[in-house]
Measured scan of single mutants.
Amino acid sequence: DPDTRIPVINLEDGTRLVGEDAPKNKDLVEWLKLHPTYTVDM
């Protein structure tokens, strides 16, 4: 689902973004380019 929010984690300080704070699936690739310290939180 393009509107599903994907949890991400900041590799530098461990900050996790989940729920309403997390980027949407459809925006994920662009969002990660803009926030290079974050990666998808598995």
Rank of each mutant, 00 (worst) to 15 (best):
P36W: 01
V18S: 14
N10T: 04
P2H: 01
T15V: 13
V40G: 06
D1T: 00
D27G: 05
D41T: 02
Y38N: 04
V29K: 15
V8N: 02
P7T: 12
P36G: 03
L34Y: 08
D13F: 14
V18M: 14
G19Q: 04
K26G: 09
D13N: 14
D41M: 03
V40Y: 05
R16A: 12
T37W: 08
K33W: 07
L32H: 08
K26L: 02
L17M: 15
L32N: 06
K33A: 15
K33Y: 10
D21F: 09
W31E: 11
L17Y: 09
T39R: 13
P36L: 01
K33G: 09
R16M: 15
V29E: 14
D13H: 00
P2Y: 04
I6V: 15
T37V: 04
V29G: 12
I6D: 09
D27N: 13
V18R: 12
M42F: 08
V18I: 15
L11N: 15
L17T: 07
K26E: 15
L11G: 14
T37M: 11
R5S: 07
N25P: 05
T15H: 11
P23D: 01
L32D: 06
Y38D: 07
N10A: 02
P36E: 05
P7F: 00
K33I: 04
P2S: 13
L11A: 13
V29P: 14
M42T: 15
G19M: 04
L17C: 07
K26P: 02
L17N: 06
M42I: 09
T4A: 08
N25D: 11
G19H: 04
L17F: 09
N25T: 10
W31L: 03
Y38Q: 08
P23M: 01
A22W: 00
W31Y: 07
V29H: 14
T37P: 07
P7R: 14
I9Q: 13
G14A: 11
V18F: 10
D21N: 12
G19K: 08
V18Y: 12
P36Y: 02
G14C: 08
D1N: 14
T39Q: 13
T15F: 09
D1A: 01
K26R: 12
L32S: 08
I6E: 07
L17H: 11
D1L: 04
H35W: 01
D41H: 06
R5A: 13
V18Q: 15
D3N: 13
D27A: 05
K24V: 04
P23Y: 00
D27E: 08
L28Q: 00
D27F: 05
L11C: 09
W31V: 06
Y38L: 02
A22T: 03
G14F: 07
I9K: 12
A22M: 01
V8P: 03
D21H: 11
R5L: 00
L32G: 09
R16V: 14
N10P: 02
E20Y: 05
V18L: 10
I6Y: 01
G19T: 01
Y38T: 06
L28A: 07
D21C: 12
K24H: 11
T37Q: 07
G19D: 11
L28Y: 03
L34F: 06
K26Q: 12
R5N: 06
L17Q: 11
D3M: 12
D13S: 11
V8H: 02
K33C: 05
D3T: 09
Y38I: 00
P2L: 09
V40W: 05
D27T: 03
N10Y: 00
V29M: 11
I9D: 06
L17V: 09
K33L: 09
P36K: 06
D27L: 01
A22R: 04
K33T: 04
T39K: 14
W31K: 11
G14E: 13
H35Y: 02
E30Q: 09
E20Q: 10
E20T: 13
A22G: 02
V8Y: 00
N25F: 08
E20L: 06
A22S: 06
P2E: 13
D3C: 01
V18K: 10
D21V: 03
D21Q: 13
V8C: 02
D41R: 00
L34M: 13
D27S: 00
D21M: 10
D21W: 04
N10E: 01
D27Y: 05
M42Y: 13
K26F: 03
V18N: 12
M42W: 04
V40S: 10
L17S: 04
D21T: 08
H35E: 02
T4I: 11
P2F: 03
V18H: 12
D1V: 09
T39H: 09
Y38C: 04
L28K: 04
V8G: 01
T4P: 07
P36S: 04
P23K: 03
D21I: 03
L28W: 00
K26C: 10
D41Y: 02
P23I: 03
M42S: 15
G19R: 02
P2W: 13
D1C: 07
D21Y: 10
V40T: 12
I6S: 09
E30N: 12
W31C: 07
L17R: 12
G14W: 11
I6H: 10
V40M: 05
G14T: 07
V8R: 02
E20V: 09
E20W: 04
P23W: 00
N25E: 12
G19W: 02
K33F: 06
T39N: 10
